[in-house]
Amino acid sequence: MLEIEDLKVYFRTNAGKVKAVDGVSFEVKRREKFTLIGESGSGKSVLAQAILRLLPKNAEVSGKVLFDGRDLIELGEEDMRKIRGREIAWIPQSQSSLNPVLTVGFQCAEPVIEHFRTDKRSVFARVVRLFEFLGIGRSRVKDYPHQFSGGMRQRVLVAMGISADPKLIIADEPTKGLNASKRSQIVELFEKVGDKTMLIITHDLNFAENLADRIAVMYCGKIVEVSPAKEFFSEPLHPYSRGLLDSLPSRGLKPIKGFQPSMINPPKGCRFRDRCEFASERCKSEPPLINLNGRFVRCWLYDRR
């Protein structure tokens, strides 16, 4: 469905090159809920924007993004427009992604009008059905964004994302800024959308645990682990994954020592080396992504050669 091969996104800045995404490869399978977790600055949002080619001009992108066999990096802007919203939908973070002067119904209809050119009445009927399905209520189609609470606004964004029936949905931090009880509603909402292929980006581990089929962990522009969700939460492989889980309140609230390194000048070799309790001489050279019975980890600890 979606195959990413050695994707690199570098930003040119006055201070030097920022390697936001540095050689990332993974595959999202059909109907899978693939969740990318990482902390702020790990490059996960940039990665998503690179897939949809939404990055600013000073970004240098290389590698391959294969979507149903086509390489999106090579496509022209005109072809890309046909894919955005129609084949790959983007559910943005909830704060300010809705236009305040348009009704939510219109904003949800827009992708359908844009891509299908059907008559107004059937589009309207479709949006109403969607609103009912997602529990927003048909009466709210003509309301404006400011009339909605944060949780409801998130539902509208989901409606907007799936209105044109896309093949792949990319959701960027869908639980950011929401209460604990709202978060569990968002989980239900995503489960309702069900059989769609999804790439979910989040730093909310509880949300990921409830929803994901597979989990990829990103640290400093690199993927350090890819595991099925269950196994990831019961037995994380990479020392960073372990540190992340141990810092959850329910798992001991143990902080990871040190700070995240600068992205302009990341440490050579393993980027987690300075904060890792298992670090050794070997970690000064870059560890490969090691395959352990279908799980992947980028750490010398698992190298059996």
């Binding site: 902390e39 730093h203 992340l244 810092s247 609230l253």
Partner: peptide, 11 residues
């Protein structure tokens, strides 16, 4: 804040 940062601030 991020989860691991939360842990260190609370500590």
């Amino acid at each position: 804040l991020d989860i691991s940062t939360q842990a260190s601030i609370v500590r």
